[in-house]
């Protein structure tokens, strides 16, 4: 699409394509939610999705995860159409508002992280020692050592968030999808979250797609951004988030065109 033309080859995904959306459209109750979305995510990439409320970010994630079907267009996961994809243990998902779950839920950190092993182990199979070992190392990686016996509902927002990440990576996914993981956590936890993200990428080779509201932080911490407002307003290196024209188009309402993306984004401030 035109957006990539401003950033040729170097910024285009190289290597294995983990997620590919082509010409995706979604209508709900006759309302257009997504129009003509084309997106590719390569192995090992961290993609941040930003955009206004109601811009279709959650909807797009749900399509990628096979929770909903697009009205038209194709979505492929690991080179397979989503409808035929079966290796779901390769995908981890943390829904929006995950940290706001029932505060009275009785499960401890240890019990919760172990849930990440349910799908890989399979229905009708008991956990094996390696399941406990993997869950333990995920707990450590996420900086939760010492909290294993605590009830998840009694943790702080940032700690809860890391429990959900530990649970997700305990299933040893190749792709991690997170919907607004930093909403409602304090700045210090947010910083820890992005540090953790970097480690997941470096140490586990994880591909990450996540939605965020905080443009400033996103631009410093991701490989690529996708700006979504019904359609992809921009897709490419995060420094473009400093471009005021782009931000106006993204958040300013009005008709969204992709014309702006042909101009070179300003790079001041970086």
């Amino acid at each position: 699409m035109t957006t990539t033309s401003a950033f040729p080859a170097a910024n285009r995904p190289v290597g294995q394509v983990i997620v590919r959306a082509s010409h995706v459209e979604l209508y709900r109750d006759g309302q257009e939610v997504l129009r003509d979305v084309d997106l590719e995510v390569a192995k090992g990439e961290i993609l941040g999705i930003v955009g206004p409320n109601g811009g279709g970010k959650t909807s797009l994630l749900r399509l990628i995860l096979g929770l909903d079907r697009p009205s038209s267009g194709e979505i492929e996961l690991f080179g397979e159409p989503v409808s035929r994809f079966r290796e779901w243990h390769r995908v981890g998902y943390i829904p929006q508002h995950a940290v706001a779950f029932d505060p009275n839920f009785p499960a401890t950190v240890r019990e919760t992280v172990l849930l990440g092993r349910v799908a890989p182990r399979g229905v009708f199979h008991w956990f094996r020692p390696e399941d406990f070992a993997v869950a333990r190392s995920a707990t450590e990686l996420c900086g939760l050592s010492g909290l294993e016996g605590r009830r998840v509902g009694a943790l702080s927002g940032g700690e809860k968030q890391r429990v959900f990440i530990a649970k997700a990576i305990a299933s040893r996914p190749d792709l991690l999808v997170m919907d607004e993981p930093t909403a409602g956590v304090d700045p210090e936890s947010e910083r820890r979250f992005y540090d953790l993200l970097g480690r997941l990428k470096d140490e586990l080779g994880l591909t990450v797609i996540f939605v965020s509201h905080d443009l400033g932080v996103v631009s410093a911490r991701v490989d690529r951004v996708a700006c979504l407002n019904r359609t992809l307003v921009y897709e490419g290196p995060p420094r473009a988030l400093h471009d005021e024209a782009l931000l106006r188009t993204l958040y300013g309402g009005g008709t969204v065109t992709i014309a702006h993306s042909e101009e070179e984004p300003h790079t001041h401030g970086h």
């Binding site: 079966r86 995908v91 943390i94 779950f101 499960a107 349910v118 799908a119």
Partner: peptide, 14 residues
Amino acid sequence: FLLTFDPEGARVSG
């Protein structure tokens, strides 16, 4: 347990 804790996540995990 998973279904109770995280129904959507359970669906995604197959």
